[in-house]
Design a protein around this nucleic acid. Structure first.
Lengths: 335, 335
DNA sequence: TTGTATGCGTTATCAC
DNA sequence: GTGATAACGCATACAA
C-alpha cells in the first residue's frame, strides 16, 4: 500500500506537503500540486481512511438508521441518500432497528464509535422520545431526521406533507360524490398518522361534513386490519375509505369485493404510499404518493449544507400527490 | 471521550493490559479482566474504531455492493446480511453501482480505502468479468459473491438454485397439461438467466417435448418486454409461458387478458421472484420464489466462517420454490 | 500475568 | 510555499 510518505520521497518533498496538496489546500504551489497529484495516481495511491479519521476526529462516513431496510419506503430513501452522499465523497453505514429502541441505541453507539460525520435517522416506533438519540450522538455529529421525526430535537427534519396529502385525498373522495367517508388511521403515537387524521378531519369540516368517530379506525395499517376495518365500515354505512396505508387500503378493497360491493360505483377507496401493486389491480387502487427517494436525497443534502457553519436547515416538507385511479373515480373525466 | 489510557490510569495498570482485557485475551488475570470491563462501562468507554482499524490494518466493517438498494431482492438480502453481521460486531457499508462497472470500481476503491474486512457483492450487469473486482480488493479482504457471481473468481458464492427452480416451474406447467410452453428468458450475459434457460430446456426434454427456439424470448425481464413477448408467444401458438421474472410474467399475463384469452384455462403463466403483487392479482400469478433474506444471511455467514483460517466455503446453493397459484392451476386439486 | 516500547498513516500546528 | 514535529487511540512484539 502506497502512502503519502512514498509519494513525498519519490518527489523530494515532505509528507506534509503531499497531504496539503491532496487535500486541495491553497497553500501549495500549483506546479508541485500538479506533480503530486500526478504521481499519486501513477503510484496508485489511495488514502487510508481509518488513519485520516483518527487524525481528524471524524470519518467520511454518514450513518443511516431505519427500522427496516427491506421496506420500499426506506430502501428508496436510502438509495436517494446514498447517491447524493457518494457524489460528495461520503460513504454510508446502514443500521436497522427492527422498530426496537434498544437496537436503535446500539446502532447509534456503533456509529459514534465509527466517528461518523452525520446521522440520518427515521426512528423506531418504540422510541417514544428523542432523549436516547441525543445521548448517543457526539455534539459535533450532524443529526438529520426524516419521515419519523421528533419535533423537540434540534436539526433538519425532512417530512412528508401528511396533512395536505390527507386533505387532498379526502377532498378528492368528496368531489367524487362520496357521502360517508371513513378513515383507517394507524396508531396515534406516530406523528405522521396524527397529521393524516387531522388533514382528513379538516377536509370534511371544510366541506361541511361532520366528523364521525365511529368510522375512524385506529388500527395497524396492514392488510388484515384493513380487511376487518373495511367490513365494519361497510356495516356502518360508509361509501368510501381513506386509508393511511396502501396495505390497509388493499384489505378494505378486498373486503368490499368479498361483500359483492362494486368499486368505485358503490364504494371508493384511496390508500397512501403509492405502492406498485396499487397500479396493477383491476380496478386500480388510488393512492396518495410519497416521494421516498426524494426524501432521502433531501436528507443527504440537509446534512451537506449543515456541514457549513452558520447554516440552519430546519424543517423541510415534501409534498404528497393524489394518484387518482379507478378505485375512487366514479365521475367520468370530461373530454 | 474516554480512552483505554483513562481506564488504565484509573486502575493503576497500563493501556496494554486494558487493550488485552477488552479484546478478551486469555493472557490477563480474570480479576483484572473483570475490574477493567466494569470500569469501562462505568466510565462509558467506547472504542475508537478508526484508531483500532488503523492499528490492525482492517476495520470491523463489511462492504455490500449491489446494483440498486431499492429493489426488493437486494434490500432483503442486505437486511439479512446486516442482521447477521451486526450480531457479530460488524457494521455494514452499502454501495450501489447502478448497474455500471465504473461505479462498481469506485465502490470497491472506497471500500478498500476504508480497509473493510470483507466485501459481499452482486455485480453490475455491465461487469462482464471479475477482473476489476480482484484488482480492487486487497488480498486480505474476504470476498463473497451472491446472486450474480463470476464462477472464475475464488471465494464463497451464494446463488439461487436457478436450474432446478426453472426445471420445477416448467415441469409444473407440463403437469398441468400445457403443451406449448414458451420462455421469457432475459439476457444470457447473466449466469442466473442461462441457468434458468437450461432448467427449462431440460424439463421439456425430460418430458419428451422438443425445444423450440421460436418461443424463447431473449429480452429484458421488465413488464413492457413481457407484454410484447406475451403477444408474440400467443401468435406463435403458445399456451403457457415460464418467465424468468415476475414483471415480465405480469406483462405476458396482461397481454393474454387483453387478447381475451382466459387464464389459466387457455393460457398458463408462471414468473420468478414471488413479488408481493403476484399474490393479490385475480387470478393470482404463480411464481418461483427466491429467498433473498436467506441469501443475505448465508453470504454474511460465509464471510464469518471465512474469517477462520483453513476454512473453505465454496459455492452455496439456495433452493427455489414453486408457488403454484391460479395462473397456472387448471387441474382441480384432489380433495 | 503484566509492562515497555513502537508504529499504523494522516493531518494540524508551528516555524522558516 | 514548504518542512519539521507531534499526536490522534489502539494493538502488538518483546521483555520481564
Amino acid at each position: 500500500m502506497v502512502t503519502i510518505s512514498d509519494i513525498a520521497k519519490s518527489l523530494g518533498v515532505t509528507p506534509s506537503t503531499v497531504s496539503r496538496a491532496l487535500a486541495g489546500s491553497p497553500r501549495v504551489k500549483e506546479s508541485t500540486r500538479k506533480a503530486i497529484s500526478e504521481t499519486a495516481v501513477l503510484m496508485g495511491y489511495e488514502r487510508n481512511e481509518p488513519a485520516s479519521s483518527l487524525r481528524k476526529g471524524h470519518s467520511n462516513v454518514v450513518g443511516i438508521v431505519v427500522p427496516r431496510i427491506n421496506r420500499a419506503f426506506f430502501s428508496s430513501a436510502i438509495s436517494g441518500a446514498e447517491t447524493v452522499l457518494n457524489e460528495h465523497g461520503y460513504s454510508v453505514i446502514i443500521c436497522q432497528t427492527h422498530e426496537k429502541m434498544e437496537d436503535e441505541i446500539k446502532a447509534l453507539k456503533t456509529l459514534k464509535s465509527n466517528r461518523v460525520a452525520g446521522v440520518l435517522i427515521s426512528h423506531a416506533s418504540s422510541s417514544l422520545s428523542g432523549d436516547h438519540i441525543m445521548k448517543n450522538i457526539r455534539p459535533e455529529t450532524i443529526l438529520v431526521q426524516f419521515d419519523r421525526v421528533f419535533s423537540e430535537l434540534p436539526g433538519p427534519k425532512i417530512v412528508n406533507d401528511n396533512f395536505h396529502g390527507a386533505y387532498e385525498g379526502t377532498h378528492h373522495l368528496i368531489e367524487q360524490g362520496y357521502k360517508r367517508i371513513g378513515h383507517i388511521a394507524g396508531f396515534m403515537d406516530t406523528e405522521a398518522y396524527l397529521d393524516r387524521l387531522n388533514g382528513y378531519k379538516q377536509a370534511l369540516t371544510d366541506m361541511g361534513i361532520d366528523v364521525d368517530e365511529n368510522i375512524i379506525f385506529y388500527d395497524s395499517i396492514v392488510e388484515e386490519s384493513g380487511y376487518k376495518a373495511g367490513k365494519t365500515a361497510i356495516e356502518r354505512g360508509c361509501d368510501a375509505l381513506y386509508c393511511a396505508g396502501d396495505f390497509s387500503a388493499l384489505g378494505a378493497y378486498l373486503a368490499a369485493k368479498d361483500c359483492g360491493i362494486r368499486i368505485p360505483e358503490d364504494f371508493g377507496v384511496i390508500g397512501t404510499a403509492n405502492e406498485f401493486f396499487t397500479t396493477i389491480m383491476s380496478p386500480a387502487i388510488s393512492s396518495i404518493a410519497q416521494h421516498p427517494y426524494e426524501i432521502g436525497r433531501r436528507a443527504a443534502q440537509a446534512f451537506l449544507t449543515s456541514l457549513k457553519p452558520e447554516s440552519n436547515v430546519g424543517q423541510i416538507v415534501v409534498s404528497m400527490e393524489v394518484m387518482a385511479r379507478e378505485s375512487s373515480l366514479r365521475k367520468k373525466e370530461k373530454r
